[in-house]
């Protein structure tokens, strides 16, 4: 015991700080874990969930007012998939491009301007993106495509792409930057072009980091609420084209929760969809974490 070295009061103040800090950590983390348990509990997925899982996910429509009411979420996860897919389709190439630009091409002063610009983009709240999309795209879509109301999956996807872009871009830039400088020099020394180096060396070496960038964008896009709530149109029909309206999972939750009787079948269905979303995002985050560590260990080696 080295601690005997100190006077008693000093020893106790140190021990108290240690105990208190452990208590603080425990409190915070256990409330976070309680969140998972409680959302699961409210969904009663483990016991007494009134629906067949297949009906819930695929077969039944969302019709809580019908007799008998039915609470399928097929339309919601289809909308989520379409919007998320579209946004990543746009954000990944552009984000990788920006990442390469920042790490390989941009002069120092351009990098110093771009970094805060991307942080600005990431700092704009979702509801402001929704509003921005509404006053710019939705109104114009009504004119361009002769639609009675302009909200549609396409607009939601476009705005969502802008929202996830800074996350994809900065993670990609980090991935490219962490490729060892010797590899670049070696390749250039062999007399190949910059394009060749990027394609054959950087992309391969940065692959885990790029994958993490995609996963990060995916997790962001899946959970985004306010923007898609305002832009996707919020109808319970299953969408058949990008110009139709839809209702992603998060929008379904935000629309319905406030007017749902606690512990009713609808309430359970909402929490079950929330739990599914939670688990999917947690899974993606776990993958990101593993990639990041794998990646760090490799680049140190």
């Amino acid at each position: 015991m080295t601690r005997r070295f100190f006077s008693k009061s000093l020893y106790w103040s140190d021990a108290a700080l240690k105990a208190l800090s452990f208590l603080a950590l425990g409190t915070g983390v256990s409330f976070l874990l309680l969140m998972i348990v409680f959302v699961l509990r409210e969904s009663s997925l483990g016991s007494g969930f009134t629906m067949n899982l297949f009906d819930f996910l695929v077969r039944d429509p969302w019709a809580p007012m019908a007799t008998p009411p039915s609470h399928g979420i097929f339309h919601a996860w289809i909308s989520t998939l379409v919007i998320t897919g579209l946004s990543l389709l746009l954000a990944i190439p552009l984000g990788f491009g920006i990442g390469l630009f920042l790490s390989e091409v941009a002069p120092r002063w351009v990098q110093q301007v771009m970094q805060p610009a991307l942080e600005l983009l990431a700092g704009i709240p979702a509801v402001v993106y929704g509003f921005f999309g509404y006053v710019t795209l939705v109104r114009n879509f009504e004119v361009w495509f002769d639609m009675p109301a302009g909200e549609c999956l396409l607009i939601a996807g476009l705005i969502l792409a802008v929202m996830v872009l800074p996350f994809v871009a900065s993670t990609a830039a980090e991935a490219f930057r962490s490729v060892a400088q010797e590899l670049r020099e070696m390749a250039y020394g062999l007399g190949v072009t910059q394009l060749y180096v990027m394609r054959r060396v950087l992309f391969r070496k940065a692959l885990p980091g790029l994958f993490a960038a995609v996963a990060l964008g995916l997790a962001r896009a899946l959970g985004e609420t306010l923007a898609v709530l305002m832009l996707a149109g919020n109808t319970v029909a299953v969408p058949h084209s990008l110009l139709e309206r839809g209702q992603p999972l998060t929008a379904l939750l935000a629309t319905e929760l406030g007017e749902t009787v606690v512990n009713s079948a609808k309430y359970q269905a909402l929490f079950a969809s929330g739990f599914i979303l939670l688990i999917v995002v947690l899974g993606i985050n776990a993958v990101i974490w593993i990639l990041k560590h794998h990646f760090l260990e490799r680049s140190h080696a």
């Binding site: 874990l33 959302v39 909402l270 979303l277 939670l278 947690l282 776990a286």
Partner: peptide
């Protein structure tokens, strides 16, 4: 392990926090 949990939970969609807050704090 703690860092892993915290980083995973840091990126959970904010609507889920809302869901939990409603069920746990507002109702329960």
């Amino acid at each position: 392990i703690v860092r892993f949990l915290v980083e995973c939970l840091a990126a959970v969609p904010s609507i889920i926090f809302g869901l939990f807050g409603y069920a746990f704090l507002v109702v329960f």
